[in-house]
Structures are given as C-alpha cells and as structure tokens.
C-alpha cells in the first residue's frame, strides 16, 4: 500500500438534511491518497447518503466536500471523471456480454476504442475470463459478476473508487478473492473508499470510520480503534459505538 500524506478526499462539516431529518450531521474526515478507507455503520446510519454526496449523486445541504482535488458542488464534472463507483447491486447489464459491458462502460468515460480494446484483452487474461467473454452476464455466478463489476469500476483508472457494500450476498471465499482485487487496485495507487456490513472486512482496511445516527463516532486504524474502545475485535468496537 502506498503511504501518502496527501489528502484525496477532504470533508468538512458536511450536513445533509431531508426536511427535518438530519442524515449527515457535521461530518469531518480526510482520506489519504492510496489508502483503503472503510466506511462503517448500521443500516440507516447515513453511509449511503454520504457516499452519494461524495460521488456526486446528491448535493450536500452545507459544508465543504473536496474529492480528487475538486469541489463536488462546483466542479462536479471534473470529480466524475476521476472517480469510479460500484454499487451493491453490481450494476452490470445482464443482457449484454462480458465484453460488451466492459466496452460500454469504457465508452461512456470517453476512452478511445484502441485503448478499450487493449485494456479489455489484458483484463480478460488477468481475470481468467477469456472463455466467457461472449457470455451474457445473466449466465454468470454472483462472484464473477462482482469481479467484473469491480474491474469495470476501475477500468478508466480513476483516482478514487467508491464501493458501496460490494460484498453483499457472496460467500467468504469469494469475498477473500475480492479483497485481493481491492489490494491490487490500492497497490496501483487507486484510493479505495468502501462501505461494508462485515466487521472482519473492517480489519482489512487501512483506516476506518464508524457512523451512528448521522455522525462519525470513531475514526482511525483498526488497531487504534480497538485500543480506544478497549475491544478485542472490530465487532466489539462496532457494538460499543452503536449502543
């Protein structure tokens, strides 16, 4: 993992309100370039709202949000070019083939045909999916879809990739394989911002933030957090914060 002191995401006093309901209450945190940042919290804690704001799907009510060096409110288009996004639904087109999906997503990021072709070839080799390049996504098992979805999300070499519960519904072995891919991406210098339910996955992250009811209650490396909350593992940390 590349250690860096440069901040790639800077969030200061981010507030997001839906009517009277405060989904994000004065969030402040930074993410360093190249790190794997875990974004944890129970359902409804405000994770998805925050990730939507960071990725430009939603506007903040107030506060400063800087992603990849750009203000998400004023320079949305520049932010979009520099981020990748993978949702918990894996977001591939079921009725397109593996190759068509890659080509389509490469295309909407404005990459050249030649570049897409070359990169697709090397990607298919790396994923060992050459045999199934012309199969429809709907015919593939969940774990494969997940790998392809992640590869597609970082196909245009973004500076940051946002993963919204990327491992939901897959078995432990596939989850492990998937984390291998996350580490690989991180080695290539891509910052990984990941939300998850699984506390064992929190241990894999460089730093972790834990949200509860709209605000960040814990922030640091897994080791720091365990010390701070006097806990054996992240599961305990999480339970102590959530109660």
């Amino acid at each position: 993992m590349i250690k860096s002191t440069e901040n790639i995401i800077e969030v200061k006093d981010l507030v997001k309100k839906f009517g009277d309901f405060v989904a994000n209450d004065h969030l402040t945190f930074e993410v360093k370039k190249g790190e794997i940042f875990g974004f944890l919290g129970a359902n409804g804690a405000g994770k998805t709202t925050a990730i939507k704001i960071l990725s430009g799907l939603s506007y903040p009510t107030s506060g400063e949000v800087n992603v990849a060096g750009y203000d998400v409110y004023k320079e949305r288009e520049k932010v979009k070019k520099n981020i990748g996004y993978m949702s918990q639904k894996f977001s591939l087109y079921e009725d397109l083939t593996v190759k068509e999906n890659i080509r389509f997503y490469g295309g909407i990021y404005g990459l050249s045909n030649k570049y897409i072709k070359e990169k697709t070839e090397s990607l298919l080799d790396r994923l060992k999916m050459r045999d199934i390049q012309n199969s429809l996504i709907s015919s593939l098992p969940l774990g494969w879809k997940q790998k392809i979805a992640f590869s597609v999300a970082i196909f245009h070499s973004p500076k940051i990739v946002f993963l919204d519960e990327p491992t939901g519904g897959v078995d432990p072995i596939t989850r492990r394989d998937f984390w291998e891919m996350i580490y690989e991406a991180s080695h290539e210098g891509i910052t990984v911002f990941v939300t998850t339910h699984y506390m064992d996955e929190a241990e894999y992250c460089g730093r972790v933030s834990i949200m509860d009811r709209g605000s960040i209650e814990g922030l640091g490396t897994p080791v720091e957090l365990k010390g701070q909350f006097n806990a054996q593992n992240m599961d305990e940390v999480f339970l102590k914060i959530a109660r």
Binding site: G56, L57, K80, K81, G84, Y85, S87, S91, Y105, Y109
Partner: peptide
C-alpha cells in the same frame, strides 16, 4: 432497478 442508473449518473455522462 438494476442499479445501473446510479453508475451512469456517477459517470461523466
């Protein structure tokens, strides 16, 4: 429904 709309909206399109 498939979640692809989000991905499209996150993209520069």
């Amino acid at each position: 429904e498939m979640g692809t709309m989000e991905v499209l909206l996150v993209s520069p399109l």
